[in-house]
């Protein structure tokens, strides 16, 4: 894939690769607290099955994962482990922050031992609000991530820049992406 890292992949081919990538994701579950149960319901229960979206849960290690779902409260004691495991993931990687504790500290916003939001440690792509968000909300977050990937400019990512959409339309580049804000396409 020399074309990709030299940033010379033509846009239609990038779009094709993006579509392929968005439908073959391996998701690493970082289940910390109550949201982990809803994440388990979304990923491992037959009702809110996530595999129909092309996303498989339960990789053997973070080194094989495409994106990580951080669900639950991140405490200051746990924060170094979160950072270390995020750095173990190979590029391209994405982060979904699930639940209000991971988004902003949530109901523990005034606690002495809670990190107020996982985006203080790792960059987050999609925010799924809720306490806990329903499994359907998490699935919408996954779908929004897939849409975001489909619009992604891979050349920019390989150059190490921030997320850039391929086509500059109003929705595709909006930040932050929060579930409930409508589709990206």
């Amino acid at each position: 894939m020399g074309l990709v890292d030299r940033g010379r992949l033509p846009a239609p081919l990038t779009k094709l690769f993006n579509i392929g990538r968005s439908y073959s994701m391996w998701v690493y579950q970082w289940g910390l607290a109550c949201c982990a149960i809803e994440m388990g319901a979304a990923f491992a229960s037959p009702r809110y099955d996530v595999m129909r979206l092309g996303v498989i849960p339960l990789p053997a290690s973070p080194r094989q994962a495409d994106f990580v779902v951080v669900s639950g409260t991140v405490t200051d004691k746990m924060a170094p482990a979160v950072k270390r495991l995020y750095e173990q993931m190979p590029e391209p990687k994405y982060v979904i922050s699930m639940g209000s504790c991971a988004n902003c500290g949530g109901p523990y916003w005034d606690s002495y031992s809670v990190t107020k939001g996982v985006d203080q440690i790792i960059p987050v792509d999609i925010y799924v609000p809720g306490c806990p968000p329903r499994p359907e909300a998490l699935l919408e977050g996954v779908v929004l991530l897939q849409q975001r990937i489909r619009h992604e400019d891979m050349a920019a990512k390989w150059r190490g820049e921030e997320y850039q959409p391929l086509v500059k339309n109003a929705d595709a580049g909006r930040e932050p992406v929060v579930v409930g804000g409508g589709p990206i396409e």
């Binding site: 607290a33 639950g72 409260t73 405490t75 746990m78 523990y108 005034d110 606690s111 002495y112 809670v114």
Partner: peptide
């Protein structure tokens, strides 16, 4: 333990 310590007893005081 302590990786999920959220400080409940202090939070209830406020």
């Amino acid at each position: 333990p302590g990786y999920m310590h959220r400080g409940y007893e202090k939070l209830t005081e406020v």
